[in-house]
Design a protein around this nucleic acid. Structure first.
Lengths: 176, 176
DNA sequence: ATTATATGTATGCAGTCTGCATATAAGTCA
DNA sequence: TGACTTATATGCAGACTGCATACATATAAT
């Protein structure tokens, strides 16, 4: 039985499959390392990153950028606050909203979180030569640029990115 | 503050980060499509794929290949059996073990599951030209071949792969 | 054959994560 | 002032998971 895919090229069929396997591998390694080394769930890690990147954010804003409902985000941040990683302050301008920021311990966790994730992805790349890396960079950039729609999906896709490694002006998802 | 990564090349630092973002994107799209279109959790999908690939497997064997504990796998398969997707029969050789196989509906779901995942990854590749695809294939193959350790991690990484697109003799994780 | 051990399944229990519905507080506008 | 919107918080329920344990079956040693 032949499947009805858009791509008829047999080579690309294989490429698409191993691309999916690579995604599984990366997420498995990153998330299990976060859990075991830092006791952070995937969404807790995302919340930490977002509060680190945009101090003063409200819960609502963080929820939108990590792709959770508001109530789920309230609980994620509640747990982080109980652990002393996040500090809540009612904002001056709008007394409804929380103004979130990381404590010193939270900032430390944020750095470790990025190091952990970067350790995984750097290790994957470390066996490639310069030409292979350049080709990979170019292909990934093209994919992200073409397929990620701006707005919510872009934010959610970048929810755990390291902004020291991908500022908005070079992010293939953001760049025009 | 400069971080202490193995890779000092600034270009590779960016590449590693967007590689991580790509993994997030793929897993988000695949898993949310499975959930909304087929009502399958990520691990339920993996169990279906594994039973499809190796009919007659025991629960224990499936657990090992998808990376869950035995008890969690019992429940995943129990739910699939309740839905009529999986059929359990006590094996003849060993009356302790279940011999799992997919029902007709289960096989249909398995095909849809692969089509859904392939739809996501094919779409990502569809904007690349032949040279880019070839370079990507080659880089991903090199990464998987070098970094995935045989045995448990290999099995778990391949837990939702489409064996019509990646037979063991061409799988970069399996080949010597 | 009997007994001890190992293997495969199943289940009680608890903990985490999530979404929906709802309640409360605070801001906005007619 | 009153109606509406926005931001947060919480009760509730459901899904998923691991640990500890119970039970059945197989295997091996005596």
């Amino acid at each position: 039985m032949v499947d009805q895919d858009a791509l008829s090229d047999g080579e690309s069929r294989h490429t698409a499959n191993i691309l999916g396997a690579l995604a599984v591998l990366i997420q498995d390694r990153v998330e299990s390392a976060w859990q075991s080394a830092l006791d952070l769930s995937p969404m807790a890690a995302a919340a930490v990153v977002q509060i680190d990147n945009e101090p003063g954010s409200s819960i609502e804003q963080v929820a939108g950028r990590i792709g959770l409902t508001h109530s789920a985000t309230v609980r994620v941040i509640d747990k982080l606050a109980e652990r002393g990683l996040v500090e809540k302050d009612r904002a001056r301008k709008d007394a409804r909203a929380q103004s979130l920021k990381l404590s010193k311990a939270g900032k430390r966790i944020a750095q470790q979180l990025h190091e952990t994730r970067n350790g995984v992805t750097d290790d994957l790349l470390s066996g490639l030569d310069a030409a292979q890396r350049k080709a990979l960079e170019q292909a990934i950039s093209a994919i992200l640029h073409r397929t990620v729609e701006p707005g919510r999906e872009a934010d959610v896709t970048c929810r755990v990115c390291d902004d020291r490694r991908c500022t908005p002006d070079i992010c293939p998802i953001r760049v025009a």
